[in-house]
Each structure stands twice: as structure tokens, then as C-alpha cells.
């Protein structure tokens, strides 16, 4: 039995901006359990005294100098664009303003 509801999957699909069909929503609701099980598994050993490793090898302070490099030619930048106009990427109507 799935512990994650179909509604929760729909919310996540919205967050992830993926339109899912009804069958996809239902199937994924069951498959999210793998996350729940994995969490239960790692919680067995991931105790508070264990530090987290975010990077496999411990590098720090990797910088580039503040030097300008060649920019992409604008035609290259726009070459893959589904739609462009006047040197800009044309995108559909934006409803939210952040």
C-alpha cells in the first residue's frame, strides 16, 4: 500500500513542472515508496554524530580570476532556441512576476 497520496504526487509534478497523465500519477504514487524505504534504511545509521559529505573529495576555495572570456556569438546562443526575436529568446506569456 502506497504511503504517498496521488494528490502529493500531483503537487510534486507541479513543483517539477511536468504534466503527468492520470495513469502516471497513480503509478508514481506507488513508486515514491522507494524513497520512504530508503529514508528508513539510511536513518538506521545516519545519526547526528556523523558529518554529511556533500562533495566526494574535500576541495575548497576553487576560484577563477576575474577575467573576461569570449562570449558566445549571439547567433550561437540563439541557435537552439525554439523561438527568438531581435536577439532575444521568445518565450510564452509569463503569468507570475517574481
Amino acid at each position: 500500500m502506497s504511503t504517498i497520496s496521488r494528490e502529493e504526487v500531483a503537487r510534486l509534478a507541479g513543483l517539477a513542472r511536468i504534466d503527468l497523465t492520470e495513469p502516471e500519477l497513480n503509478r508514481l504514487a506507488g513508486e515514491l515508496d522507494v524513497i520512504v524505504e530508503s529514508v528508513a534504511r539510511v536513518s538506521e545509521v545516519a545519526t547526528s554524530d556523523v558529518p554529511a559529505t556533500s562533495h566526494p573529495l574535500p576541495l575548497t576555495n576553487v576560484f577563477r580570476e576575474d577575467v573576461v572570456e569570449a562570449a558566445l556569438p549571439v547567433e550561437d546562443a540563439l541557435a537552439g532556441a525554439p523561438s527568438a526575436e531581435g536577439g532575444r529568446f521568445a518565450v510564452p506569456q509569463i503569468l507570475e512576476e517574481d
Binding site: V9, L12, L15, S38, V42, A52, T53
Partner: peptide, 25 residues
């Protein structure tokens, strides 16, 4: 979808964070 769930509000420490601890181990 799995990843969005694992990172979504309130779960980060328990999920991604715990997995990073397993990396240490």
C-alpha cells in the same frame, strides 16, 4: 518526481542530508 519529493519542504535534512551522512560512512 522522487528527487523533488526528497528535497521538498521539510524533508531535506531527513532525506538528502541523511544520505550525505551515509556517504561519510
Amino acid at each position: 518526481i522522487l528527487g523533488t519529493y526528497a528535497l521538498s519542504a521539510g524533508y531535506y535534512d531527513a532525506y538528502y542530508g541523511s544520505a550525505q551522512k551515509v556517504r561519510t560512512l
